[in-house]
């Protein structure tokens, strides 16, 4: 028996919005410690890694490990039926071919149940090694989304350049060039408003605008985003999911022609 109950059901709705444009389907690996999802996007350019710890759920039970292959378009349709203040429970029998979503209104007066067929997915799991990154940049997630959106008007790529002074985002294309510099902030009232650069070595890498913009669909999950960069390895874009876990996007850098 697998059962995971989340009083703050809106988090699950937001997680779905953050992955459904990148992935058509994905396996949810449910284990005693929590739920993991790891999948490459359809073009194998980026990787999504989602981690929801059991401690983050209001009730979590997983008697034996199960892998639930889900069509994310279908799951997204079902989660759209949940209100933002609904309590969401996911449950499945040990060797079931369906998963059930239960949505309870806060006053328990309305209870909806949706059963969805599971899929057999044969997905390549990638091993993500522990990496020491040269630059780790924390910035407000809304600011990052704004920068990606603004720069995507100029070209298909965004160059992210990190030095000890701060971080520079640039793009160039037919209409001209754009440069946005963010300096490290001094003291701020709210930690989530800060721009913090932890740099060992300066790094400049180029990434696809299209993918960065898709990652920013996770913005509602967290006020802060963390970018980790090293030369010649994928960028990591991480959003915390409340107290439950995190979503990480790995994007391979673009290579000059």
């Amino acid at each position: 028996m697998f059962e995971a109950r989340l009083v703050q059901g809106s988090l699950l709705k937001k997680v779905m919005e953050a992955i459904k444009d990148l992935l058509n389907e994905a396996s949810f690996d449910c284990a005693h410690s929590g739920i993991l999802l790891q999948a490459m996007d359809n073009s194998h350019v980026s990787l999504v890694s989602l981690n929801l710890r059991k401690e983050g759920f209001d009730k979590y039970r997983c008697d034996r490990n199960i892998v639930m292959g889900m069509n994310l378009t279908s799951m997204s349709k079902i989660l759209k039926c949940a209100s933002n203040d609904d309590i969401i429970t996911m449950k499945a029998q040990d060797s079931a071919d369906t998963v059930t979503f239960v949505f309870e209104s806060p006053n328990q007066e309305k209870v909806s149940e949706y059963e969805m067929k599971l899929m057999n997915l044969d997905q390549d799991q990638l091993g993500i090694p522990e990496t020491e990154y040269c630059c780790i940049i924390k910035l407000p997630s809304g600011e990052f989304a704004r920068i990606c959106r603004d720069l995507s008007q100029f070209g298909e790529s965004i160059v992210i350049s990190c030095t000890k002074e701060g971080v520079k985002f640039s793009a160039a294309g037919d209409i001209g060039t754009a440069n946005i510099k963010l300096a490290q902030t001094g003291t701020v009232d709210k930690e989530e408003d800060a721009v913090i650069v932890d740099m060992q070595e300066p790094v400049t890498l180029t990434f696809s605008c299209k993918y960065l913009n898709m990652f920013t669909k996770a913005t509602p999950l967290s006020p802060q985003v963390c970018l980790s960069m090293s030369p010649d390895v994928p960028l990591v874009v991480e959003y915390k999911i409340g107290e439950i876990g995190h979503i990480r996007y790995y994007l391979a850098p673009r290579i000059g022609d």
């Binding site: 993500i128 391979a252 000059g256």
Partner: peptide, 14 residues
């Protein structure tokens, strides 16, 4: 024209 690398070339299958 810049080529986009595949993510699988960076991470070995586990």
């Amino acid at each position: 024209n810049m080529s986009q690398s595949l993510i699988s070339s960076f991470f070995s299958p586990s």
